[in-house]
Design a protein around this nucleic acid. Structure first.
Length: 350
DNA sequence: TCTCCACAGGAAACGTAGGAAT
DNA sequence: ATTCCTACGTTTCCTGTGGAGA
């Protein structure tokens, strides 16, 4: 039933639909490059999964077809200033810098290497105002940036006045799609990714409706529906497959998030998942009780309480665990207890 | 109201891997 | 081969918060 799985992946670049106005703002911002000038900076903001990254990639793709332009797409979440500069250098032509190259030297290399208009995409840039990266980029005359974040007000409140001023008219909001817009988007994906006639327009509308305007959710659900239909021996996708697709899609999104995290997070996640609702102190007790066994032979050592708090925060950010403060207790629980760590952890059952 | 306690999270300090210089 | 240097992940230290109990 699925003829091309790559269509459902995050890195698939579709023809952008229902973002004409936004696309115009972006392409206008990039237009100076065609004259050999630096592009305008842009801030792109909106909820997760509504196509901010896709729109940016599409705009750069369009620019590249008119005028090949160096660009770098950097994931900034949790990265230091030096880390971001290093990622940019890795994407631009030239040799990659060594792991321990001093920050000052990285910046000097960037200034030397960039001699024509270059666009840097700062994805997942919510924490950017805390780093010096915008100042660093300002020191490279040919570099312009497109920052992608969730909360515009928060982001702008933390950058300095000159940057805020430079963004006037170039702070671009992407809202959730309407059901009919998202139906169109799913229609286009299924045309490429599924056998002809596998799904009806009405079923696509149901998927779009269930995804509540979040494109990534809808796309994952479309794939999940096709997978369910195949497993159940249906020749085309049936309504029951669509109904059951949301659960599977949600699971797949969470599994993907968990897989992307390192060992310590998996161990903490498994402790919480197996216990149901659990207090911080109980997590720590359990962690300390099993640490020796779980870390054995893994080339890593148990982490301190303080660092566990940081890891737990990340699990919350990734929507893998929930958290609530009540009285003097902070309580954690797994958002979906059926999702287990793919690592083969020797977490003993209490 | 005051003191004690447990915990959260910010900031500084620390240890280590690995590349460069000698 | 040895020494030096840096980024990064982590630990240590510390301050703030808020409920419990005197």
């Amino acid at each position: 039933m699925i003829t091309d799985r790559s269509v459902f992946r995050d890195d698939w670049l579709p023809d952008v639909q229902h973002r004409e106005a936004e696309m115009t703002v972006l392409t206008d911002a990039l237009t100076p490059v065609l004259e050999g000038d630096r592009a305008e900076d842009v801030l792109l903001h909106g909820p997760q999964g509504v196509g901010k990254t896709v729109l940016t990639r599409a705009a750069l793709d369009r620019l590249n077809r008119q005028q090949p332009t160096p660009s770098a797409h950097v994931h900034c979440l949790g990265a230091s200033t030096a880390g971001i500069v290093r990622s940019i250098l890795q994407e631009l032509p030239g040799s990659d810098p060594a792991r321990t190259t001093p920050q000052e030297e990285l910046i000097a290399t960037l200034q030397e290497r960039v001699s024509e208009p270059t666009v840097v995409v700062l994805d997942e840039g919510d924490d950017l105002p805390e780093t010096d990266i915008l100042d660093v980029l300002r020191g490279v005359p040919d570099i312009s940036w497109i920052a992608i974040c969730h909360d515009e007000i928060d982001w702008l409140s933390r950058v300095d006045e000159s940057i805020r001023h430079g963004l006037t008219d170039r702070s671009l909001q992407l809202d959730k799609f309407t059901t009919s817009e998202l139906t169109d988007i799913l229609e286009a994906r299924q045309r490429v990714g599924l056998e002809g006639g596998a799904i009806s327009r009405e079923q696509l509308r149901m998927l779009a409706d269930g995804a509540a305007g979040v494109a990534r959710r809808g796309i994952f659900a479309l794939r999940a529906a096709a997978e369910l239909a195949t497993e159940r021996g249906h020749t085309t996708i049936e309504d029951v497959d669509v109904e059951d697709s949301f659960d599977r899609a949600r699971r797949q999104l969470r599994e993907q998030a968990l897989e992307s995290l390192p060992l310590h997070h998996h161990i903490l996640y498994e402790i919480i998942r197996r216990k149901g609702e659990v207090r911080t102190a109980a997590i720590n007790d359990r962690y300390e009780a099993i640490a020796a066994v779980v870390y054995d032979g893994r080339n890593q050592t148990p982490i301190s309480k303080r660092e566990r708090r940081t890891k737990l925060q990340k699990l919350v950010d990734y929507n893998l665990i929930g958290r609530r403060d009540e009285e003097r207790k902070r309580v954690y629980w797994a958002c979906d207890r059926s999702i287990s760590s793919p690592l083969d952890l020797q977490v003993p059952v209490p």
